[in-house]
Design a protein around this nucleic acid. Structure first.
Lengths: 234, 234
DNA sequence: CGACCATTTGATATGGATCAAGCGATGTGG
DNA sequence: CCACATCGCTTGATCCATATCAAATGGTCG
């Protein structure tokens, strides 16, 4: 956490949350407003440059993080040098939830990002007084568990199915419509899906050939035929 | 839940837990005694014959289950007909924890099993009065999340690494020593590891050839060289 | 413009899937 | 008690999806 600029004043100037939970892509019934509000009140807004470390594996897990702008990834480096990405976090998403005292994954900013950082102890104290907050934390955890279970199902499927699922997931999270601006590189996607960068690239090319998507520039992808993509999901 | 025998009397007759949490294989500091005790007091002991359904996907998740004897598996059938096993549960293990109102996986007894079944509403009521129980539930969830994350790491590795990890995991859970009696079939193992039955079988044969294990009978496996197996874990 | 990095494309290798057959244990009916 | 069917597992042969190695292309920044 070097070379970071605390920009807490932004929070003070804008008491209305600039990012609403509805943007995080999960349209569950439960709202996180009480938690949102507390985080805004008590958190520090930090700026992380592209590719900078937010926390490292095995560091004490003292904080909870909420993406305000930009994007982050969590990951683990395996002993053979490969990198497995645990998840991508977009504006509105919360990450850094841990059950042990230490982080089991590292986290980095993918793009220049503003991230709200809150002490876990402060959140826990709040949860003790406000049951709604405890419930929201619990729900966040449950959602994380579902997300991870879904990824297990993904990892036993074909490359085409994995890439198609990824695109549909991102389209839902990043925007309502069919045009996606991906913050992450092909290597990030590959490490998330358990594929190589070449396979991801080839699969995108082939999906484009099948008129399921368009790739006007490497980071922008337009879904042309969602139904076809869904069918690939198995 | 047809053709099941409620054998609640066993609980009444044996107020001292017949299965201690230490048998569940996780040697974390936190104990689940308070939860154990409540489950024994309030749960019904049920007998499930081999391969019988314990609950089905999309059924309301009204109960929590604790294996007393035997073993269980959770699983999901994919649209292409393949089966993914979510987890194996051995004596002492708790399963059926859900965040939604419905189960997202189905569960079956692997062998004839005795399973303690407790209403979630009863547990939740208890958790409201006893913070220790709430904490234990939370920890169970966290442990489940870690377990699932570990499996993601497993699924991107080679067949040999997956099988080696599986054997080490089982050795730790099923017994302290090097001899494992597996309750599940090769097909179960394959569906757990995302491999085919042939690959699992061949891999075991090759590990035997490498003197890492012995396979005196198909369900019994002796770890001969744990270090070699660990090294395969990546 | 030239260096650099991300991405795509091409050629080849390979690990695991698939298809198919054999084997050993278990159980059943004659 | 044995012949035979069944089931779970292993072994063999072949195929294919994805990895690997290598090179070309394109976009960005000093």
């Amino acid at each position: 956490m070097h070379s970071l600029t605390a920009v807490r004043s932004e929070v003070a100037r804008r008491p209305a949350a600039p990012v609403r939970h509805s943007q995080h892509g999960y349209d569950d019934a439960l709202d996180t407003d009480a938690l949102d509000h507390s985080m805004l009140m008590m958190g520090a807004m930090m700026a992380y440059p592209r590719n900078s470390e937010i926390f490292g594996e095995n560091e004490p897990a003292e904080y909870l993080y909420k993406v305000v702008s930009g994007s982050a990834r969590t990951y683990k480096i395996l002993s053979d040098g490969r990198r497995q990405i645990g998840g991508f976090y977009l504006p509105g998403d919360i990450f850094g939830l841990e059950f042990a005292d230490e982080h089991t994954l590292s986290a980095e900013a993918i793009t220049d990002s503003k991230i709200l950082v809150i002490k876990r102890s402060a959140i826990n104290a709040l949860a003790g007084r406000d049951a709604a907050i405890g419930k929201q934390l619990f729900n966040l955890t449950g959602r994380e568990l579902c997300r991870v279970q879904d990824r297990i199902l993904l990892l036993i499927k074909s490359a085409q199915e994995r890439v198609a699922s990824f695109l549909l997931e991102m389209a839902e999270r990043v925007s309502g419509d069919n045009s996606i601006e991906l913050p992450m590189s092909r290597q990030d996607i590959a490490d998330y899906l358990g594929l190589t960068i070449e396979t991801v690239s080839r699969t995108l090319t082939s999906l484009e050939g099948a008129a399921a998507i368009e790739v006007p520039s490497s980071r922008r992808i337009v879904l042309r035929n969602r139904l076809a993509l869904s069918r690939m999901n198995g």
